[in-house]
């Protein structure tokens, strides 16, 4: 497990990181290093230059305001899982972060590194898609944001350009009457999600006014399930099961632990359970 030779540069600011990216062709940004370093040790990635942005405090931290929460890209999973701000305004994101890896991984790994790597078994992407979060990117030519649903493009592929840095994530705070839940079916070897179901349910005056379900792990990118049938429904177990059974994936991913067909099946079951948990939290 010895990586190929590479140069190491440490950026002191976002601007410096952006210029280093410009100057070094095929350079890779490293935040917590928990996705990049294993790839390099296996020599699946052989970047000539690694730009360490892990110490940029300007990209760390969690805040809330104007009905949304903002999470800096270098915020660790451990900080997200333990955040009081998120516990009050967006607990499902903290819940998902608490499922990532083990304590050591959560202490080093960051939300920005996680979503930029875009592993299909990652816990964060389905939650961001469910929440309708926006992902903010900066390049020498300016800043832009992209909806989470558009951000994840394919297996390990995202909308991040070669000259861009992921700076932060904005997600709408969950309002009163909304419950959300993330349920994970963990791979016993990797610890990644075989299936991760993120669901939300909003109840106003005793009736369901909105519901969402996004399932990770069955496809290369998070799969949104049309659960609009729940709007106006009594949120009975049967109604929830029927809605979750709408999960479909054309070409589901599979491995020696869980085939594609099985992942779709478990996605439906976990989708149902996540919706039921969200319902119970909403009411």
């Amino acid at each position: 497990m010895y990586p190929a030779q590479f140069d190491y540069r440490r950026a002191g600011s976002v601007d410096e990181a952006l210029s280093l990216l410009q100057e070094n062709e095929d350079a890779k940004l490293m935040a917590g290093g928990h996705s990049l370093i294993p790839m390099m040790k296996l020599r699946l990635a052989q970047p000539p230059v690694v730009i360490d942005i892990g110490r940029l405090d300007e990209l760390k931290g969690i805040s809330e305001g104007n009905g949304s929460v903002r999470v800096g890209s270098l915020t660790t999973h451990a900080d997200i899982a333990a955040s009081d701000v998120l516990a009050a305004h967006c607990p499902v994101l903290a819940e998902a972060a608490g499922h990532i890896g083990d304590a050591q991984v959560r202490n080093r790994g960051t939300i920005g590194g996680n979503i930029a790597h875009a592993d299909p078994g990652s816990d964060i992407p389905p939650v961001l898609v469910l929440l309708g979060a926006s992902i903010h990117l900066q390049s020498p030519s300016g800043a832009r944001s992209v909806a989470a649903a558009e951000f994840f493009q394919d297996l390990l592929m995202t909308d991040v350009g070669e000259d861009e840095i992921l700076t932060h994530v904005d997600a709408p705070a969950l309002g009163a009457g909304t419950g959300a839940a993330y349920l994970k079916f963990e791979h016993p070897a990797s610890g990644y999600a075989v299936v991760g179901a993120a669901a939300s349910v909003t109840i106003e005056n005793g009736r369901c006014t909105a519901a969402g379900l996004v399932v990770g792990g069955v496809d290369a990118t998070p799969t949104a399930v049309d659960v609009s049938s729940l709007t106006g429904s009594d949120l009975s177990d049967d109604a929830i099961a029927a809605a979750a059974s709408g999960l479909d994936a054309e070409d589901p991913i599979g491995d020696i632990f869980a085939s594609g067909d099985y992942r779709v099946h478990v996605g439906k079951v976990y989708g149902k359970r996540a919706l039921a948990a969200a319902r119970d939290r909403a009411s």
Binding site: A189, D255, I256, F257
Partner: peptide, 23 residues
């Protein structure tokens, strides 16, 4: 419950890493 060394038909060890072999 978990551990399994799996070879494919060509004799490649498919569960050759701890990402696939579950201890």
């Amino acid at each position: 419950l978990w551990e399994n060394a799996v070879y494919d038909e060509s004799g490649q060890l498919v569960s050759g890493s701890l990402m696939d072999y579950a201890v």
